[in-house]
Design a protein around this nucleic acid. Structure first.
Length: 464
RNA sequence: GGCGCGAUACCCAAGUGGCUAAGGGAGCGGUCUGCAAAACCGUUAUUCACCGGUUCGAAUCCGGUCCGCGCCUCCA
């Protein structure tokens, strides 16, 4: 598999020995997570599913930043403890994540539970003269790391000249960033240099190295983290280990809302919760991987609606196969299935091209649905096609509403009853049964000689 | 101002040197139907922001222009 590496700016072969180790920068838990967070999480969850579905072991670490000025401010506003705020939003994070059908990461380390690791790391950096203690805290000495700027392609001279004024005078250089901030406010921890709390960047260095080692396969996050967060992580980690940090830097594109940046001030932030309530998890997932992961996606009602229609096509396909009956030989689609699987994997193996992968996927769906319309799907075809469909659904994290055999039987009974009534031209009675079936969340698919059906995921935004 | 990314039909979007520029949505036309919905079929770019260059050959490579976006302070 090849993945675009932000550092070298080229597609790099994903190399690994026994497993693929991924560190994904998580969220700062001071508020509800939004659709932008969701996209990043979905992209890495889908990547993880793809690798695992192909027999590759994955260790995925995603951190929570649970100590930060934003959390502290929010706590003050609401008269709560910082801990109370972060715990609350960690909980909503997991609720969102579960609803989105995200597989749980291997571990979700919290910054506050790794203060010692950070202190050790900082101590080593001070010993190496890569960091120094000043009046306000401990700072990283950017001038000591000659490769500073290699990820974001920035030159330190330009950064210095462009640095804003009014910056902490106690720093040797305006580019130096805080590893430890002195503070007596809550929360604070003891350190060899004085009470305080850690800087943002150091937590990811400490936790990624602790859980994944000095040199792991993929470090991920949103594009907006490239500078300064990831740049600083590289500086800290590589100064500490004297080795290359992550082998591949994989960054996901931003989500805009109707072409505008999502921001609190504009008031256009779409929470995951809101999107899930309106569109459900499957549409959200399809939407988030509809374009290439590295490119931005614009959130519009039209695009969501389009993905809802695509979901309906998948549901149709699934039920055409699920309800297939034993009939005579029709067509042989085994080569289509083999090709589909091959092309799907090829697309994802080439820089995780989910957009192309989805095309391949929907091409198969369309072919099967066409055959179904001609009543050419039988049990044999279904048995061949279902595993392929289910493989792709699993990779994509799409969960179709399923039915038990008993349910199938009872739905068919109702359908037959309706058919009889229709033949007798008792349309009012027949429509009543149709409504009853619809009430069970089931839609009918009429073919020439038979009526099939599917159980649809109820989507709130559809009913308007 | 600096750095980076992008521009392909009404919309989304794949395609990075060569077969007819994928696929989806929407629209329009149709099949089916008691009606409706769904489903299914057909149809929609001589051309890839613009100008120039390289080449037998360019959406794709090179140079320039214009536009849009992100980052340069916290951000997924």
């Amino acid at each position: 598999m090849k993945i675009s590496d932000t550092l070298t700016n080229e597609k790099k072969e994903l190399e690994f020995s026994d497993k693929v180790r991924i560190y994904l920068c998580g969220v700062t838990v001071y508020d509800q997570s939004h659709i932008g967070h969701a996209r990043t999480i979905i992209i890495f969850d889908t990547l993880r599913r793809f690798l695992e579905a192909n027999g590759i072991k994955v260790e995925l670490i995603q951190n929570f930043t649970d100590v930060d000025d934003k959390i502290i401010n929010r706590a003050k506003e609401q008269g709560e403890s910082a801990n109370g705020i972060s715990n609350k939003y960690i909980q909503t994070y997991f609720e969102d994540s579960d609803r989105l059908n995200i597989k749980r990461a291997t571990n979700y380390p919290k910054a506050t539970e790794h203060i010692d690791d950070m202190i050790n790391l900082i101590q080593d950096l001070i010993k190496k003269e890569s960091a120094y203690v000043s009046k306000n805290g401990v700072y990283f000495r950017v001038s000591k790391f000659s490769e500073y700027g290699k990820l974001s392609k920035k030159k330190t001279e330009e950064l210095e000249s462009g640095a804003r004024i009014g910056i902490d005078e106690s720093k040797e250089n305006p580019l130096d960033f805080a590893l430890w901030k002195f503070s007596d406010g809550q929360p604070n921890w003891e350190s060899p240099w004085g009470n305080g709390r850690p800087g943002w960047h150091i937590e990811c260095s400490a936790m990624s190295i602790k859980y994944l080692g000095k040199n792991f396969e993929i470090h991920g996050g949103g594009r907006d983290l490239i500078f300064p967060h990831h740049e600083n992580e590289i500086a800290q980690s590589e100064s500490f280990t004297s080795e290359q940090f992550a082998k591949i830097w994989m960054h996901s594109g931003m989500i805009t809302i109707n072409g505008e940046k999502m921001s609190k001030s504009v008031g256009n932030v779409k929470s995951i919760n809101h999107v899930l309530d309106s569109w459900g998890p499957n549409v959200a997932r399809l939407f988030c991987i509809s374009g290439h992961y590295s490119k931005p996606i614009d959130y519009t009602e039209d695009l969501l609606k389009e993905n809802l229609i695509r979901l309906r096509q998948i549901e149709t396909c699934y039920y055409e196969l699920r309800l297939a009956e034993q009939t005579q030989e029709t067509e042989d689609i085994s080569s289509l299935l083999i090709e589909t699987r091959k092309k799907f994997d090829t697309a994802l193996n080439d820089d995780f091209n989910t957009s192309l992968g989805l095309s391949v996927f929907f091409n198969m769906i369309k072919t099967i649905n066409s055959l179904a319309a001609e009543e050419k799907i039988n049990k044999k075809i279904a048995e061949q096609a279902l595993p392929v469909l289910e493989y792709m659904l699993d990779v994509l994290g799409i969960k179709i509403q399923t039915v038990s055999d008993e349910e199938i039987e009872s739905v068919f009974k109702l359908i037959n009853k309706r058919e009889t009534l229709r033949e007798e031209k008792q349309f009012e009675e027949a429509d009543k049964i149709r409504d009853q079936i619809a009430g069970m969340g089931i839609s009918l698919i009429d073919h020439k000689n038979k009526t099939l059906w599917m159980k649809k995921e109820p989507i709130k935004s559809e009913k308007q």
